[in-house]
Design a protein around this nucleic acid. Structure first.
Length: 556
RNA sequence: AGGGGCGUAGCCAAGCGGUAAGGCAACGGGUUUUGAUCCCGUGAUGCGCAGGUUCGAAUCCUGCCGCCCCUGCCA
């Protein structure tokens, strides 16, 4: 994964370069440390790309570390999903898969050494009391009565915590730092807590678990991580991160650097909100194609390359902002335009009978698979007397700038002939049910001898070999720019975010497309086969529509 | 008694004392058998505000203002 677009420089790269130049470190080791308590989303993608590409640019390495220090929230199912998603994004951690839980024993020993050094103590205070003693943002905290226990007593108590002699929450191990610090993280933070919940990996072996603050920096040190990247809300934790590394017998000295997390318009990117959407059943699951999860984007047909390009163009800074959805959509189209093969598919079919084309006759026309890629080759399409065109490509009473079909109008059928509308057939309700047209046999793949021009080119499918399919059209989950700012996200879902169309007529070659392949339905958008698709019932997802200046112009 | 961050175009963002990169969006124009793609063009006399230092300031100094984060035994 070395061949990415050149990354714009950013403050973290500059830091690394300078550390290398000054000899502060010989190699670069980063890590992506998700907690296995949910599915990865676009926000994680930023962290993944950042950590992996930073390491690869400097010929270092990036670890995947599952930060599994809280068994009450974590679950095994998430671990596999996380690994699968990171791989799908295009990154490889090689042999460097780690778990914070691998370090439980070492962390316990380190805690012991902190106690020995007089920097930690077992506290009897309840959770509520600790909160009370902590003080407030503007008032200093008070020292716990347990703060001055002897080392011996602390060690004994800590051992008993470990051996399950106390109930959950009865005691905690705290660092002894400064209850009057302006930084609340330094007011004797909790290092270990009692939790009888079985752990997905260590089972019932442990009755106590380290907190994030105690586990993270030390795990970084144990893995010899050099640059530990995290998001802005951990800036306040850095003094504690450094304090622990200084006091503990650690094998290396990692440093923490913070960057702004990704926010995107019309999207929610917090585990809490995504979980709500899933739990309330407002989406079909974590992999609903409308979800900004990696599994959702994958099912939607968004190529991992597009995600990587998007992230790499964002650059990295400490400014909290909101990236417009359009910037992401641009990268999806950009990639798909180069790589997706083109096919003809009629979403809302309108039957056309070509009166001057002999009944029973058919012929083949050649169609380019991808004008952007000569190697993609060509394919043959059947042309016949009866075809389907898009309902939206016909208007009985067209406005001035409408270039498509209308009574007496002529257009080109893509890759084949000129077609002229002679007559409209309607049902009793006045709905247009069929068009009777004529074609010009002298226009097959070439301009007519008389040089007349048509402005419109429309797609079509022969009634002879068209295949039926279901197509699911997606729009952003939220029409609101900043969903969830107030109120519940699940109540803000745009009902237009999913439209299912049945009875679409698509060219037969589309029946052979497999999951994971991107296809452009010409003039419509980029599509992929959904997991729900079966040979007898094809289902396609629209990844994203083509840019459309026509409907935009119409709206003005 | 508070602590930690951040302010450059609608959005993202370079810039590191020498006279405001780039991308997205938007808007014009051209090409086109996808109203797509592609190509060309248009935007900050000004960098949160006010002072100061300097020949010269988005960059240095001072003071304001605005926004975000922190009082889980979550991460």
């Amino acid at each position: 994964m070395n061949q990415e677009d050149p990354l714009p420089t950013n403050f973290i790269m500059e830091q690394v370069r300078s550390d290398l130049d000054k000899g502060k470190t010989a190699t670069v080791v980063t890590r992506f440390p998700p907690e296995p308590n949910g599915y990865l989303h676009l926000g994680h993608a930023k962290a993944i790309c950042l950590n992996f590409s930073l390491a690869s640019q400097f010929n270092g390495r990036c670890h995947l570390r599952l930060d599994d220090t809280n068994p009450s929230k974590e679950d095994k199912q998430y671990i596999d999903a996380i690994k699968r998603d990171v791989k799908w994004l295009g990154y490889d951690w090689g042999d460097h898969l780690y778990y914070a839980s691998d370090n439980f024993d070492q962390l316990y020993q380190m805690a012991l050494s902190l106690i020995e050094a007089g920097y930690a103590y077992v506290d009897d205070l309840s959770a509520e009391e600790i909160r009370e003693y902590r003080g407030s943002l503007t008032a200093p905290g008070r020292e716990s009565p347990s703060r001055n226990r002897t080392r011996e007593e602390n060690i004994l108590l800590f051992e008993r915590m470990k051996n399950g002699k106390f109930a959950d929450g009865e005691k905690v191990l705290r660092a002894k730092i400064d209850m009057s610090s302006g930084n609340i993280n330094l007011r004797d933070p909790v290092l270990f807590r009692i939790l009888r919940t079985p752990h997905p990996r260590t089972g019932t072996l442990w009755k106590i678990y380290p907190t994030y603050d105690f586990a993270h920096g030390q795990s970084d040190a144990i893995e010899h991580v050099t640059h530990s990247l995290c998001t802005l809300e951990f800036e306040d934790h850095r003094p504690l991160y450094d304090w622990l590394l200084e006091k503990l017998p650690v094998p290396s000295r990692p440093r923490q650097f913070e960057f702004a997390r990704l926010n995107m318009s019309h999207t929610v990117l917090s585990k809490r909100n995504l979980m709500r959407l899933v739990d309330t059943g407002r989406v079909t699951g974590w992999d609903d194609p409308r979800m900004p999860t990696l599994s959702g984007l994958r099912r939607r047909g968004v190529p991992p390359e597009a995600i990587r390009n998007f992230i790499s163009k964002l650059s990295v800074s400490k400014r909290e902002g909101v990236v417009e959805l359009a910037a992401f959509e641009f990268e999806i189209r950009e990639y798909l335009n180069q790589h997706a093969e083109r096919r003809l598919a009629v979403l809302k079919p309108l039957k056309v009978t070509i009166e001057n084309y002999p009944p029973g006759k058919s012929e083949q026309v050649t169609a380019s698979n991808n004008p952007k890629d000569e190697n993609a080759g060509t394919r043959l399409l059947t042309f016949s007397r009866e075809i389907y065109i898009e309902r939206d490509d016909f208007m009985e009473d067209p406005p001035k700038k409408f270039f498509r079909l209308g009574p007496g109008r002529e257009v080109r059928l893509r890759f084949s002939y000129y077609l002229k509308c002679k007559e409209i057939v309607k049902d009793q309700l006045g709905n247009v049910t069929e068009l009777r047209c004529s074609y010009d046999p002298e226009t097959k793949g070439a301009p007519p001898p008389d040089g007349r021009k048509v402005k419109g080119v429309i797609h079509w499918v022969s009634a002879l070999d068209a295949v039926e399919a279901e197509v699911r059209l997606y729009n952003p989950l939220f029409s609101d720019e900043a969903p969830g700012k107030e109120g519940n996200v699940e109540d803000q879902i745009d009902i237009e975010s999913l439209k299912v169309i049945n009875g679409c007529k698509i060219e037969p070659s589309l029946a052979n497309v497999t999951v994971g392949n991107a296809i452009q339905f010409e003039r419509n958008g980029y599509f992929c086969v959904d997991n729900d698709s079966r040979p007898e019932r094809l289902v396609f997802n629209r990844t994203i529509a083509l840019r459309d200046s026509w409907t935009k112009a119409k709206a003005d």
